Computed example of a mutant assay.
Amino acid sequence: MNLDRAVLAFAGLMILASLALGHFVSPLWFWLTVFIGVNLLQASVTGFCPAAIVFRKLGVRAGCAFK
């Protein structure tokens, strides 16, 4: 698995988890979904992605988007 796929999989997992928590636990968890969406938008504009930095430090090899 390369870095691009790891970041996308992590973002998708976090969105699904926040939606499930918002539905079953408290609607306040939907703010996590908002935060993830804003982070994805800023990463597409600035190229800065905290998740990519963490995965890179964990040894995941770079893909074409995060070199």
Results as ranks from 00 to 15, higher is better:
Val7Met: 03
Leu32Arg: 00
Ala52Ser: 10
Phe66Asn: 05
Cys64Ile: 10
Ser26Tyr: 06
Val34Asp: 01
Ala65Lys: 08
Leu8Lys: 14
Leu32Phe: 13
Ser18Met: 11
Ala9Ile: 09
Leu16Glu: 07
Ile15Phe: 14
Leu32Lys: 00
Leu41Arg: 07
Leu3Glu: 03
Pro27His: 12
Leu58Thr: 03
Leu40Phe: 11
Val54His: 06
Leu41Asn: 05
Met1Gln: 11
Ile36Glu: 01
Trp31Ile: 11
Leu8Val: 15
Gly63Trp: 02
His23Arg: 08
Val34Ala: 12
Leu21Ala: 15
Pro50Glu: 03
His23Asn: 15
Met1Val: 12
Ala62Thr: 13
Arg56Thr: 15
Trp31Met: 08
Leu3Ala: 05
Asp4Tyr: 06
Phe10Cys: 10
Pro50Val: 11
Ser18Val: 03
Trp31Asp: 07
Phe24Arg: 13
Ser44His: 06
Leu58Met: 11
Val7Glu: 01
Val25Gln: 13
Leu40Asn: 02
Cys49Lys: 00
Val54Gln: 05
Ile15Ala: 11
Ala20Glu: 12
Leu8His: 11
Gly59Ile: 02
Gly22Leu: 00
Ala9Tyr: 15
Phe55Ile: 03
Leu16Arg: 06
Gly47Leu: 08
Asn2Gln: 06
Ala65Glu: 07
Leu41Thr: 09
Ser18His: 04
Phe55Met: 07
Trp31Leu: 10
Gly22Gln: 00
Ala17Ile: 13
Phe55Arg: 01
Leu16Asn: 07
Gly59Lys: 02
Val34Gln: 01
Leu19Lys: 02
Thr33Asp: 02
Gly22Pro: 01
Ala43Trp: 03
Met1Asn: 14
Leu19His: 02
Phe35Tyr: 08
Ile53His: 14
Lys57Cys: 10
Cys64Asp: 09
Lys67Ala: 15
Val38Ile: 09
Cys64Thr: 13
Ala51Gly: 04
Ile15Asp: 01
Arg61Glu: 10
Asp4Lys: 04
Phe35Arg: 00
Gly22Met: 00
Ala11Asp: 15
Leu21Ser: 13
Gly12Val: 04
Val34Met: 07
Arg5Lys: 14
Ser44Ala: 09
Leu28Ala: 10
Leu41Gly: 08
Lys57Leu: 08
Val25Glu: 13
Cys49Phe: 01
Val34Leu: 10
Phe35Lys: 00
Gly12Trp: 03
Ser26Met: 04
Cys64Arg: 15
Val60Leu: 05
Asn39Phe: 14
Leu32Tyr: 03
Ala20Gly: 13
Leu8Tyr: 10
Gly63Thr: 02
Gly59Glu: 01
Val34Ser: 05
Ile15Met: 14
Leu32His: 03
Phe48Arg: 10
Phe24Lys: 10
Asn2Val: 04
Leu58Asp: 03
Phe10Val: 09
Thr46Lys: 10
Leu28His: 11
Lys57Ser: 15
Gln42Ser: 14
Ser18Cys: 12
Trp29Pro: 00
Gly22Trp: 01
Trp29Glu: 06
Met14Asp: 10
Val7Trp: 01
Val38Asp: 03
Gly12Met: 08
Leu3Met: 06
Leu8Asp: 14
Ala20Asn: 11
Val25Cys: 15
Ala11Gly: 11
Ile36Lys: 00
Leu41Ile: 12
Phe66Cys: 07
Asn39Trp: 07
Leu19Met: 13
Ala20Ser: 11
Gly47Asn: 05
Asn2Lys: 12
Ser44Trp: 12
Ser18Thr: 07
Pro27Leu: 14
Ile36Ala: 04
Ala6Lys: 09
Ala17Arg: 05
Val45Ala: 15
Met1Tyr: 08
